[in-house]
Amino acid sequence: MDIAPDTHHTVPASAPPGDLAIWFFILAELLAFGVFFAAYAFGRAHNVELFNEMQQTLDRKAGAVNTVLLITASWCVARAVEAVGRSRPATGARWLLAGIACGGGFLVVKGFEYADKISAGINLSTNTFYMFYLSLTFFHFMHVILGLVILVALWVKTRQGAYGPADMNGIESGAAYWHMVDLVWIVLFPLVYVMR
């Protein structure tokens, strides 16, 4: 799938948008999640029946709703960056607020999922599947919280007019972190909720 943009860069930019440091942080985070995903996949390989049976106890629709919420949040943040880049900070702030709402929605849905499992007496020591499910999704959950803290900070500063076409570094860096959180969930959802 390739959706060609309507702008073409004859000379590629040498560095990604935002601060270079955030990209090294993102790469470190992706490495950690990559190890976690591989551990889950190979853990499953040794307990296929257990993993397939336990996967049926997950709320797949809630996982899909959360995918919609995270992707929509990412889209809102991308629209915010685009608006700020066109000297429209007020529009950008509104998009950021929409992104924060979607991210908050993710936490609420996940919170209900966790409450459901906890009330059923499920914990980290229930079995190997739930050890992976709870630790992997909670690790991601914490990243969503951090991402939301960053988005709120961006929203406040955007409202104050701190960003504009000449100063995109802060908002692009924060946006890149949020997109990383989205990217990780795009792998996590099919891996944990659907693949069997």
């Binding site: 590629p12 948008p17 989205d182 795009i186 792998v187």
Partner: peptide, 21 residues
């Protein structure tokens, strides 16, 4: 599907489409 989605996020939301390979 996962690769298609991830690629779009990386290239278009993260803004790496026009960046060095």
């Amino acid at each position: 599907i996962c690769f298609v989605k991830g690629r779009l996020v990386v290239l278009d939301f993260m803004g790496l489409r026009g960046v060095k390979f």
